[in-house]
Design a protein around this nucleic acid. Structure first.
Length: 232
DNA sequence: TGCCAGGCCGGGT
DNA sequence: ACCCGGCATGGC
């Protein structure tokens, strides 16, 4: 499959998803700081639970770098109980806050002014921040043009036979970033649409769905065999 | 009831 | 370089 083909397929997928679901208006958070907190709290956790945890923090005016720096770990863990893994996540939030203060004086704007390819490895050094969380922060909080890969995206691409089952994060990310314009608005919407599709119908145990908007992505030949693309 | 959710880490091969 | 258990709440 040529580069041209990949680019075309990705754009077709995007168009189909957008036509099916429309703009998703991500990230569901009011401020960049809230986006970052949400990105950490939503790790392997449904968003509805994260909303409750963030609601707690907001209610007690804890949604600021300063406030999270000052609150004791145990108290913080209790506030975010609803998001699951609360002991771990409290440590993760603290780790990020410590990083923010020791490197950027607790100032998000200062952190965001750092070039994407330099900031990313810094974020990855923080215990509790991996590829997806780092990229979510870069894209949805800092508005940098980087593509976020999550379990839904991987599952959908695999079922479309665009990647192998064990393609790693970097490889999947490159598929998007080498075949699409580096546009943060496009990446923002695209990833949100993958999540939307995943939530709607791409359940692990229901690969046979019949109303998937990607069902018609058949305008190319599979690199593996000549079968037409299957739905999810 | 069991399985899943917008992962990540650390220890074991 | 992989592979796996642990982390924890809430919804279907």
């Amino acid at each position: 499959m040529s580069l041209q083909d990949k680019s075309k397929i990705l754009k077709t997928i995007y168009r189909r998803l957008y036509q099916a679901f429309g703009a998703q208006n991500w990230w569901p958070g009011e401020t960049p700081f809230e986006v970052i907190i949400g990105a950490i709290l939503t790790q392997n956790t449904s968003w509805i639970n994260v909303e409750k945890a963030i609601g707690n923090l907001k209610k007690e005016n804890l949604l600021s770098p300063r406030a999270l720096k000052d609150i004791p770990l145990e108290k913080l863990a209790d506030k975010i109980r609803h998001s699951g893994y609360f002991n771990q996540k409290a440590k993760k939030l603290k780790a990020f806050i410590d990083f923010l203060f020791s490197n950027y004086c607790g100032n998000l704007e200062k952190m965001f002014s750092k070039e994407m390819h330099l900031l990313r490895p810094q974020l990855l050094e923080i215990k509790g921040i991996g590829n997806e969380t780092a990229d979510s922060i870069l894209l949805y909080a800092a508005d940098k043009p980087i593509f976020v890969i999550d379990a839904y995206t991987q599952r959908i691409l695999f079922r479309q036979q665009l990647i192998s089952e064990k393609a790693d994060y970097e490889e999947i990310q490159q598929l998007f970033m080498q075949n699409l314009p580096l546009d943060s608005e496009l990446f923002n919407e695209f990833h949100a649409l993958f999540v939307r599709l995943g939530k709607e119908i791409c359940k692990k145990r229901k690969p046979e769905c019949r109303r998937c908007p990607l069902k018609k992505v058949t305008s190319y030949q599979s690199p593996v065999n000549n079968e037409e693309k299957i739905c999810l």
